[in-house]
Design a protein around this nucleic acid. Structure first.
Lengths: 349, 349
DNA sequence: CTGTTAGCGCCTTCAC
DNA sequence: GTGAAGGCGCTAACAG
């Protein structure tokens, strides 16, 4: 049964329409439509329609359907930093949930050099039922406009300045606090923080909570470096930091990719981890748990994020007026082998 | 200028149509259409239309346009293994090229448990102009059907059994051969190969070429392990392989993720790399070049792949009848620090 | 240059 | 249970 077939020449032409199959069966086009969509039709008729549709490779035209129903079944998903393995995971999970909900994901990757507004506009042209934004900067220009128009959107793992919208976020505060307390408990006092892009709510929130937590214990941050969100930038920043005078005994990183950069720098400098340096990340991307890495990090509940994002969006699409939901998902500190008591050089090298 | 605005209640209702703005300006709807699409219109009129459209937040309805033009501007991109960092890179690159070409990417991630046919069908419902398949298995069921219907599709980094279609592939044969010769030249004679999923053309081709190359030098493969495509499976497979009797002095891996698994296993087992074991990967994903890893691997030209995939697809969409194109892109061996002369234990530990 | 006229493929009343 | 008719928003001739 060729359920797939958008022949261009086979079968003599364009892909068949519901009218085509109606003609063949000598029924009306609306009967075909009903038969295929679960309307009330005699079972015998329905069977014939379904058979013919399958045989001819009929596939409904989403555009035509949308024109009348005003629902595209499309959901826009916006990702900025797809280079960070956290996002593919998240996108994958969102796509899966969306598919379960019978929706299709229209993905827009918006790099730093891309025109955010233009990309979002494309999504809008396709009349996406809503948009899920991940990894967006706090100063996004498209989001506030959309929000002020009551367009259904949900922010995942991000918040945007001055925007009221549904949001699904990991508990960055609790996560960063746990990391700080853990480091403090280990005895670290000379602690550095490497942040990512400051225009990002995750980086900001994690930093604030971390710093606050240290200060609560009377410890001041020894160093603060802003390194962007990728491994490369973090690597060179860490090289400088760790090679300087009075280097820290522990480094907190605002995400795992940055932590890897620090680990690489330590390796290059011959610094033993965790004997000479403890490193903590954030996200718990797959690599973090690899044997040769074993990064201590704060785990974000990716699949729950995806699940809730889709659920909330569906609710928002269905009901315009309800209160905005803000879901704070628990993050958990996962202790592995990049952290230890300062000054020990048992090391694992 | 609110170029973005699909208000649901602001402005009192649904998003404006071209007819709405025509009424406001007291011109015909077709004039609006022409003004916005570069048709021949008096400059003064065009200016007024553009102003009004921007002010009202008009966004064309892609579905309506598609219905008449029969072009959706959508291109389907299918990815199976988005967990392998190679694919996000590729997808990102493809998305960027597509955007340049004025097209939008409709991404379908098809996991092992997903119904491939159903997912592709969704793409078809949205009348994608064509589909770019990456990381598909040789026994795909959807692809042959599509191909036999002359549906525009291009295979990237994969080929499918018995299917005639445009394809963009790295030169797996040359790459694997270069790796084999390099290892042989270093003096390795007890060499293992870890493959991924056998149903995948890349794995198959790389294996065949590697083995042939060894045999050309009178060397038989010491071990052959099939481990699936992810780090985890490779890790346990490598643990067994390296812990066994007469372990190899070198391991060729069919992709980088597998190589990382081997590296992790070696680390766990206390085997020095490259002193006690040489490891070679394939793909050259970003992590491979990280300082602490320094994986010797065969580089695939990701951005060229993306570029050509989009170019070929465009050609195919425009012209049905032309010969299928098959582009073989050069792959280059990148020597880093996981390979060396066997038996040395200078190591880098 | 600009307005009028046809649909594109489908869903949805409304009659029968 | 089924058919006829209308129209979603837009582009593309075709006249003026």
């Amino acid at each position: 049964m060729p359920e797939l077939s958008l022949s261009r020449r086979s079968g003599g032409g364009r892909s068949p329409t519901s009218r085509d199959i109606a003609r063949e069966l000598d029924v009306s086009q609306s009967t075909v439509s009903r038969a295929l969509n679960g309307g009330s039709v005699a079972e015998a008729t329905r069977a014939r329609v379904i058979e013919a549709a399958a045989r001819r490779g009929y596939v409904v035209n989403a555009a035509a359907r949308e024109l009348v129903t005003k629902k595209s079944g499309l959901v826009g998903v916006v990702v900025a930093d797809i280079t960070n393995p956290f996002y593919p995971e998240l996108v994958e999970a969102i796509g899966a949930r969306l598919a379960e909900a019978g929706k299709t994901m229209l993905l827009a990757t918006i790099g730093v050099t891309d025109d955010e507004v233009a990309r979002v506009r494309l999504l809008l042209e396709h009349r996406v039922d809503g948009i899920i934004f991940t990894s967006t900067q706090v100063d996004s220009t498209a989001i506030p406009r959309l929000a002020s128009d009551d367009f259904p959107l949900v922010l995942v793992n991000r918040e945007v300045d001055g925007v009221e919208a549904d949001a699904i976020v990991g508990d960055n505060v609790a996560g960063a606090t746990a990391a700080a307390e853990y480091l403090l408990g280990l005895g670290h006092r000379r602690i550095a923080l490497i942040t990512g892009d400051a225009r990002t709510s995750t980086s900001r929130d994690r930093e604030a909570a971390f710093v606050r937590s240290l200060e609560g214990a009377g410890v001041r941050l020894a160093h603060r470096v802003e390194a962007g969100f990728d491994q490369r930038a973090a690597f060179s920043a860490a090289l400088e930091l760790l090679g300087g005078t009075r280097p820290p005994t522990a480094v907190m990183c605002v995400n795992d990719l940055i932590a890897f950069g620090v680990l690489n720098a330590a390796r290059r400098l011959g610094i033993d981890v965790p004997g000479g340096l403890s490193v903590v990340g954030f996200d718990d991307i797959p690599m973090a748990s690899w044997d040769a890495i074993g990064l201590t990090t704060v785990r974000q509940p990716i699949s729950r994020m995806a699940e809730e994002a889709v659920a909330v969006l569906e609710r928002r699409v269905a009901d315009d007026g309800s209160e905005f939901e803000r879901h704070l998902l628990p993050c958990e500190l996962v202790v592995r082998s990049t952290t230890g008591v300062p000054g020990t050089t048992k090391g694992k090298v």
